[in-house]
Amino acid sequence: MQQDRQREVRVRRADQPGDLGWVVLAHGETYHRQFGWNTEFEALVARIVADYAGAHDPRTEAAWIAEVDGERAGCVFLVSGDEPGVAKLRILLVAPEARGLGLGRLLVGECLSFARAAGYGRVTLWTNDVLASARHIYEGEGFTLADEERHHSFGHDLVGQNWVLDLEPAVAAG
């Protein structure tokens, strides 16, 4: 296999058959292999995906798939938060074999551009401190750590973190 060839990378909406199922499958398998997390995590992702699939407003909520050479390799969701003007970035994932290509930054960038265009003033996210690569992306986009708390989930003792990003309003052309 030739290692130096240019790989085709693209980010698109998660609107093709199989996309939502892939998100659940990829999260379950990846986090089990990497961190030993059990099916509680896969069930959480399945609930997030099911809620999105069942009742999302395409004007204010969206999901994206990153592809490498035509194969799914990552995802991220943006959904409405619990307060007006606040969105939640959810279930960012880059498959291990696609890491190092900048997919995480592309996905988060797409997500934040959409959030600005949809009129959100703030984006929040919940993650765990063991997810260092994702945290590095969030910090690079300007997210700040709001709080953290120890918890036992997915078969492990973890430190959950809440991150916040206040968005600048989108600048209207003209």
Rank of each mutant, 00 (worst) to 15 (best):
R7S: 02
G28M: 03
L92Q: 03
W22K: 03
G70D: 10
L158W: 11
L89G: 14
E40G: 05
R47V: 14
L165F: 03
R13E: 09
V123Q: 07
L125Q: 10
G100W: 12
Y120I: 13
G85W: 11
V45L: 06
A170W: 04
P169T: 00
A55R: 15
A146S: 12
D82K: 14
F154H: 00
D82Y: 08
N38Q: 04
H151F: 13
L167P: 05
I91Y: 05
A66L: 06
P84R: 12
E61Y: 04
C75R: 07
Q161I: 08
F35L: 15
G119W: 12
A118E: 00
H27F: 02
S153G: 03
H151T: 11
I91F: 00
V45A: 05
R122E: 15
V164T: 06
P96V: 12
W37D: 13
N162M: 11
A173Q: 12
G28D: 10
K88T: 01
L25A: 09
G104I: 13
E42I: 09
G21W: 02
C75H: 12
E149I: 03
P96I: 13
R72D: 02
V79H: 02
A62E: 15
P96Q: 12
R10M: 11
R47S: 11
Y120M: 13
R13T: 04
V108D: 05
L92C: 11
G119H: 13
G36E: 08
E148G: 00
G100S: 10
E8W: 07
N128Q: 14
L101P: 02
A14P: 07
G160Q: 06
